[in-house]
Design a binder for these strands. Structure first.
Lengths: 120, 120
DNA sequence: CACTTGACCTAAAGTAGCTTCAGGTCGGTA
DNA sequence: TACCGACCTGAAGCTACTTTAGGTCAAGTG
């Protein structure tokens, strides 16, 4: 798979994928004889997971910790599971926070409606 | 109201509030004779709204546009309402995206469970 | 009464997470 | 053969803050 295809698939930009690789988030990417990156299905799945973690607020350094576990093989799966469970918790908190902000926006919209009604 | 109290109230840091003022996001902050910022209830409410907008992904430049409308008085309320409605749409999209990411995490957690079960 | 502490101030530098740019190498096509 | 588009690297630029350095002032303490 080419880098542009993985970008399409994951929603990450081509630059971001290269940036992640340089940062050590995807350790196993092979190169063809032409020097270009070749992504396996596994690589693509891994990047999709990284994209979800990033989109839900995991920091680069946490992601690197997670990637280091990934690079160390299946023995680290319990640790990876624990990390994902913890992150799921923080995601729930983030979702609750977004809901809270939504009610603030909605209240503000209501106030605007009242003001506009009064002025008529 | 002191800056530290507004920080407490809004969840913004003291530095962020100063940064927002310098950037022109809160035009009406008065200073005491001692040179310190004094926040009215209205100022605090405005910063709370800014905090919600920021937390839900509005950019600084969009926030400035919004703040400029705010500074121009009640005549701009219809425009402000339109801006908030548009932003509410993008918030909904963001929430949907978080849900999507959550299912990806959950699927991954399930896979981990299967692998760990197989190994026993 | 001197002294320290703590909240505030400004201006400037540092940071995270990307994106954009400059400059170069290929393989395919008109 | 000459150009196009996708890839490459390394470095600079950008956004939204945070941290640091250095200073003022009021209040509390020995």
């Amino acid at each position: 798979m080419k880098i542009s295809e993985v970008a399409e698939l994951t929603g990450l930009s081509v630059s971001t994928i290269r940036f992640y690789e340089e940062f050590g988030l995807c350790p196993f990417i092979q190169r063809g004889a032409d020097g270009k990156r070749r992504f396996s299905k596994t690589d693509a799945d891994w990047l999709e997971l990284l994209a979800s973690l990033r989109a839900t607020g995991m920091s680069m350094s946490e992601m690197r910790t997670f990637a280091d576990l990934y690079a160390s093989g299946d023995a680290t799966i319990p640790k990876r599971k624990a990390a994902l469970l913890a992150h799921r918790q923080s995601l729930a908190a983030r979702q609750a926070e977004l809901e809270r902000c939504r009610t603030i926006l909605d209240r503000k919209l209501q106030k605007y409606d009242e003001i506009m009604k009064d002025q008529k």
